[in-house]
């Protein structure tokens, strides 16, 4: 059974579904993430769909800083995504808190709450960079499948 599952999952690199969560960012990274899906960059070429439902997602794309109120939601969404999954932190804020690191209600980067696989720096990162990150995460997904970590 496990073997069949793994065989089926070899196709995962061709169909990475994405869940985007704005976790307290300034919108800059969010609109760039959305721009990745629109005509000029067209991530659907690679089978990427923004599903908006954690239960259907493979890639969890998080932008922005973590604060006291959204840390729980971030964790919930993370737990709802079925394996195998990859977590992508987009933008300086998601990496470390960025310019807001010292603000009173900011806890810090996304990796303080959930494990992060790929970091994309930039304020905001350009859509090309986000697309590159998504494709890198696809490779990572494939690795996870091959190493039997499902």
């Amino acid at each position: 059974m496990k073997f069949i599952k793994r065989l089926l999952l070899t196709g995962i690199k061709k169909s990475p579904w994405l869940l985007h969560f704005d976790c307290g960012s300034c919108n800059g990274c969010d609109i760039e993430t959305l721009a990745v899906l629109t005509p000029v960059y067209d991530a659907e070429r690679f089978g990427v769909i923004n599903v908006g439902n954690p239960k259907h997602a493979d890639i969890f794309l998080v932008t922005g800083t973590v604060n006291r109120k959204n840390q729980e939601i971030l964790n919930n969404l993370y737990l709802q995504i079925p394996e195998p999954k990859v977590i992508l932190a987009v933008g300086t804020c998601a990496l470390s808190g960025g310019i807001f690191a010292e603000a009173p209600n900011v806890i810090g980067g996304v990796d303080k709450i959930i494990p992060v696989d790929i970091y994309i720096p930039g304020c905001p990162p350009k859509p090309e960079a986000i697309l590159e990150g998504v494709l890198k995460s696809v490779e990572l997904l494939e690795d996870k499948v091959k190493n039997g970590k499902i």
Binding site: I4, K5, R6, L7, L8, L9, G11, I12, K14, S15, W17, G47, D58, P82, E83, P84, I150
Partner: peptide, 10 residues
């Protein structure tokens, strides 16, 4: 691709 991936997922 989508269908096969979904079949394999948890």
């Amino acid at each position: 691709y989508d269908l096969f991936k979904l079949l394999g997922k948890e």
